[in-house]
Nucleic acid binder design. Sequence first.
DNA 1: TTGTAAGCGTTATCAT
DNA 2: ATGATAACGCTTACAA
Lengths: 341, 341
Amino acid sequence: MAPKPEITIHDIAKKLNISASTVSRALKDNPLISEATRKKIKKAAIEMGYRPNVMAANLRTRRTNTIGVIVPLINRHFFSSVISGIEDVAYKQGFAVTISQSNDKLEKESTIAHSLFSNRVDGLILSIGMETQSYDHLKLFSERNIPLVFFDRIVEEIPAHKIVVDDFGGAYRATQHLIEQGRKKVAHIGGPLNLQIYAKREAGYRKAISDAGLQINENQILHNSLTRQDGLNAIKSILKTKERPDAIFCANDTTALSAIIHLKERGIKVPEDIAIVGFSNEPFSELVTPSISTIKQPGFEMGQKAAELLIKQIGSKTKPKAYETIMMETELIVRNSSQRK
Amino acid sequence: MAPKPEITIHDIAKKLNISASTVSRALKDNPLISEATRKKIKKAAIEMGYRPNVMAANLRTRRTNTIGVIVPLINRHFFSSVISGIEDVAYKQGFAVTISQSNDKLEKESTIAHSLFSNRVDGLILSIGMETQSYDHLKLFSERNIPLVFFDRIVEEIPAHKIVVDDFGGAYRATQHLIEQGRKKVAHIGGPLNLQIYAKREAGYRKAISDAGLQINENQILHNSLTRQDGLNAIKSILKTKERPDAIFCANDTTALSAIIHLKERGIKVPEDIAIVGFSNEPFSELVTPSISTIKQPGFEMGQKAAELLIKQIGSKTKPKAYETIMMETELIVRNSSQRK
DNA sequence: TTGTAAGCGTTATCAT
DNA sequence: ATGATAACGCTTACAA
């Protein structure tokens, strides 16, 4: 069966003996067009199976009504919550959303950014990858005044709206909670310090320790990429240090999970011997035994906020006078991995 | 600061006193262009900060080098594995991938399909939502000969390549395993039967039961949308039936999880009193206590295969003579929720 | 090896 | 209220 031919506004125009511009206007509900012709045109469009060629329209209008989103990994509860929040407001405002994952690779992040730029997305929302330390691929957007909004893993130096959570406060609260449970020697499994979120989490941790008048054992502060394997290496390494800690604050739930599993295997009791707190409230944290105490981040709301700011910026043709950094509150969720018995 | 102006091939041409077509050809590495001018042009392009306008090129070539992907939910390990598989082969072949989630809503699925069509994606890979029972939004693609590949949740009637797993075999194996553990009364929490995967899983379950000469209690076969809440309702309802089952085969891990949690709360022992097997091998299944026995599906490979078939089809201008249905093998993973003690 | 010119399907400007 | 025409930025016969 031969494919249906592409129907264009010209085909509709010819059929109805009117001009293409009238068709275009009618389909866009331009009020200049009379009710009667508008109806006639829309009817014909449906009958003929007309489908607008968005590329042509975009080329002409220099707008795509598309928002690009780059996240490190779509299969993380936090990130997919943010994406859902973005979609929630974007769709309501008539924007399409195209999602890409960088897999925490700078090269892929850069490729995607170029691709999104070349496709002329109207704006970009992103959370940078662990490797990202140079920002040429993002300059593209700022140079051409294409709105950019960062969330979570932001780049401080780039002028743009930023949606973050209170990483410092959350980490402080998490560490303080461990101390309140009577722990004196709290270790830390942290992320790469080029990402501000991890630097802030570590800072919050350090502050909580020093506010409580306790000591930090620098050998028990580790930095890695926070994968399952990294977590395993980290906990092993911590167990080899001289004074075994009685608690660990992990910069994410994945490493908290690794730690818990390894400690169980070694017969070290969680939380009795070593208490654990994670960060992010991944769904698995409440399912493991013991369930993982963690810091909850409002992902969906962050996505909504990011999309709102971005779309507002897309709408106004002038640059915002000032860039906002919106800090969302976190919440400590106490579960079994940290409770005093 | 004023935004940098858009640089076009004409700007480059003017600067170098050559024609735009030469620039276009050089940038595309057309062998007709001499080495010298090619180099000169590429150098200028970089210096001037040229970024191709993909929309214009697409409009002209009627190709976007973009693959659309629609999945019910990106935040499911199975689906995000498939997506990673798709990206793996697509990027290598120079295709961009744009991912969307339908949230199992027909309306959203339809909106997305129309949007992808209007943006003239070169091909579509999709797994339909739970509500999807009419396929007008997919006819669009077949009518215009835009290649379509289904995976997992396929539509039997639509002519297209299909990548599925052996749902029947997996379910058969899962149920057989329960029977081998000495279970005589196996219940089933199933999905909506308009989705073939769930119909097949139920069929596999039924076959295993009858092959073993056991009876099915039709009151203990339930159908729902397999959410956490649905699973909870289902297990409650099963517990109310006259002859309590000694095993349950759940059509996904989510409902298996609900069942396990509820049974624990009620003091009913898993697997001693009721053994459970799920389906999909979501990451949480090995983390819960007891860990969930389940059927593993090769998501990444399915994605790779889907992308390969799609891209091959995009490449050839003729319709494939026959549409393949590729069935991938599943694997039973035995964990604690089903082991005889 | 390079240039000229037409055209992809739409929208915007200017007429009528 | 509608039409004619040019233009968006690129690719591609065809010509030179």
